[in-house]
């Protein structure tokens, strides 16, 4: 503070900048919020979700309808369980194995989807490709946020649900030609 002399409280400065930049923490929270909004059912839907819905008119079954009607129990995509907070060492090993298995299946699904995209019209490919890229980016943003705050239960839950959603969408795209539209 300065030693300036004042004659009233009206002369005191209203602006006092914080001693450190508070924006990075705020930006992180905003990114998490944006990522959450990108996940269907967790808020305002932006980006990829409407695009996937639009693609339904041509080749892709709308994801919302698909999830509700088209999955039979034995056809369910591989499930990701919350492997981020295992309770014990044994739990940690099991969780790691599940995670490896999940990632293997997801990578395979991505490859199949890439092949499927190649068979789509350029317009469809662009729409679906953009949707998938946005979904992938959302997951990466959640992962980054988790890197800063690994114990955050909300982020963990968001990560699991978004990853499950990713599997559903990928399965939808892969199987789109097999569906009777």
């Amino acid at each position: 503070m300065t030693t300036r002399r004042v004659k009233g409280i009206g002369e005191l400065p209203r602006d006092i900048p914080p001693s450190r930049d508070l924006w990075p923490a705020i930006a992180e929270a905003i990114q998490a919020d944006l990522a959450m909004k990108a996940v269907p059912g967790t808020g305002r839907r932006v980006g990829w979700w409407p695009a996937v819905g639009l693609a339904a008119s041509v080749a892709l079954v709308a994801v919302g309808v698909f999830i509700g009607k088209n999955f039979k129990p034995d056809e369910a995509p591989p499930r990701l369980v919350n492997t981020l907070t295992p309770a014990s060492d044994a739990g940690m090993v099991k969780a790691s194995l599940r995670q490896i298995e999940y990632e293997k299946q997801r990578d395979q699904l991505w490859n199949e989807v890439q092949a499927k995209l190649a068979t789509m019209s350029p317009a469809e490919r662009e729409k679906v490709g953009k949707s998938l890229a946005t979904l992938k980016q959302s997951i990466q943003e959640i992962k980054d946020a988790l890197g800063h705050d690994p114990a955050n239960a909300l982020l963990q839950e968001l990560f699991v649900s978004t990853s499950q959603e990713e599997m559903r969408v990928l399965t939808t795209v892969r199987d789109s030609g097999r569906q009777e539209l």
């Binding site: 300065t2 300036r4 002399r5 004042v6 004659k7 009233g8 409280i9 009206g10 002369e11």
Partner: peptide
């Protein structure tokens, strides 16, 4: 708005508040 009879140091006024 409060006007003081005698000017005081800004720091002193902040401490009083």
């Amino acid at each position: 708005t409060m006007v003081l009879d005698t000017p005081v140091e800004e720091e002193e006024l902040e401490a009083a508040i």
